[in-house]
Design a protein around this nucleic acid. Structure first.
Lengths: 254, 254
DNA sequence: ATAGAGTGTTAAGTCAGACTTATGCAAGGC
DNA sequence: GCCTTGCATAAGTCTGACTTAACACTCTAT
């Protein structure tokens, strides 16, 4: 991997770096997404300097980054105000991560899962038309290993393979916006696993659907790949829908 | 609109603000997205201070924001390096805007248009299940006005109504990630209009499809709303596909 | 000749003080 | 009660100093 790509991990919080900037962005971001700093709350630079024992420039730089994510907005004479959740950039990888780690988890999980139902079938269709033969072959191989891991109940392997499978489909779609969704999708899949939301043994039907997606993509059958992925997404929705049905839907009209 | 929402416009460049920070973010962001600062190029803080006649803290804050968008990465002793386009956050509203305004226009246009073919049909389906009656009624009204503007050839009105129509469908879907796509979609629709990529008179079939979406949503017929929106998106793809077919597809596998 | 260790230089990161500027809010006048 | 004005407040910007991470080069041992 070239150095140009290596350097991307220097994003605040992205690599667990311990720089003051990255830590403050993480601390404030989590506090905002978790509701500890609720919308409307006004923050002052000098107060944050004292509370977090860092210099003014560390605070200012952190607030600039949070503002670009839509979490806060600064105004002269007023201070820096925490914004309503509806203004947050829900596609920012860190916002997604913070919400999945805090009280916004269910809302974020539902948002991404619904987005997946739209995106992944279409990605499968495009992949069937654009995939390189070598990548299609690897996808079929991946589906085979997924099957074996599922049958054996090796859930850690299954999770890793499942993430890789969906990543490969998104990449093969040839659409950069689809491809960039792989990281939040990976986090959602990891989260489902961590929260015990996946069956202890994937149903053989689910395993077959993944195989269908792979072989349809390999054969260039976009419609069939699309439909097989729709089936996977419908099953995923059925398995996770109860999570948000159990609580008031903040984004569902009253 | 409450002050909490008002303050969101303080994002750098979002409101044409003339602060030094916002201007530098815009200048560097456009230069990077436009290829004037190509991937691999190393920037030094002191050089940027001289070239742009601003202080070090203005430069540092701007680079922090650009780094959070994935456009650059700073490393001690090395400098700040422009990253490969594959690492940019393609969902960041400013990155989208800069690419639409520079050489990345066609790639971004294609990405968003393909994303729309995935998202908007699903949004229409969800909207049918979730829309409030008052909003459904307004959507039908909007479709009627769209029809009239299209028939009369009032293209400015047609554009504004078209943007509003798609925005309302995305909002009615009840999914925040769908809703947040309305801004880049609006920019794409505006861009198509500005580049003369829309027919001077929308075909009556296209007008009918919008009416179908609206009435299906009002009747709660998700499948029909979905299919009508698929028809709109297919037509949109047919009208714009030649733009990227004319040039080497950077995201299509070789 | 090559690999590893050590060191120095380089650039970012952090700190602190000073000054500027936008603007919100309160007071006073009409 | 409303409008204007002035002041205080907080962010924005500038500058100098210092710290620190780490890259690159040199030297030594094998």
């Amino acid at each position: 991997m070239s150095m140009i790509c290596d350097m991307a991990t220097s994003r605040p919080g992205a690599d667990g770096s311990t720089g003051l900037h990255a830590r403050l962005v993480e601390t404030l971001g989590m506090a905002i997404c978790g509701g500890e700093l609720p919308p409307g709350r006004v923050l002052f630079i000098d107060e944050l300097v004292s509370r977090h024992a860092v210099s003014r420039s560390v605070v200012r730089e952190a607030l600039r980054v949070l503002a670009s994510m839509g979490l806060v907005a600064s105004r002269r004479r007023v201070g820096t105000q925490v914004l309503d959740a509806s203004l947050w950039n829900v596609y920012d990888p860190l916002v997604i991560r913070w919400r999945l780690a805090t009280g916004g988890r269910i809302a974020q999980l539902r948002s991404i899962t619904e987005l997946r139902t739209a995106v992944e079938p279409q990605a499968a269709r495009l992949a069937a038309a654009r995939v390189r033969p070598i990548d299609a072959s690897e996808l079929v191989t991946l589906a085979g290993r997924l099957w074996a891991a599922g049958q054996d109940g090796r859930m850690d392997d299954f999770l890793a393979l499942d993430i890789e499978f969906h990543h490969r489909v998104l990449t093969a779609s040839g659409n950069e916006m689809f491809e960039h969704l792989h990281q939040p999708i990976a986090e959602v899949l990891s989260g489902r696993h961590a929260y015990g939301l996946m069956p202890s043994h994937p149903h053989v039907d689910a395993l077959q659907m993944h195989a269908d997606v792979a072989s349809s993509i390999q054969r260039g059958d976009g419609e069939r790949a699309h439909d097989a992925m729709v089936a996977i997404m419908n099953r995923t929705m059925d398995e996770t829908r109860h999570l948000w049905d159990m609580q008031s839907q903040s984004t569902t009209p009253a």
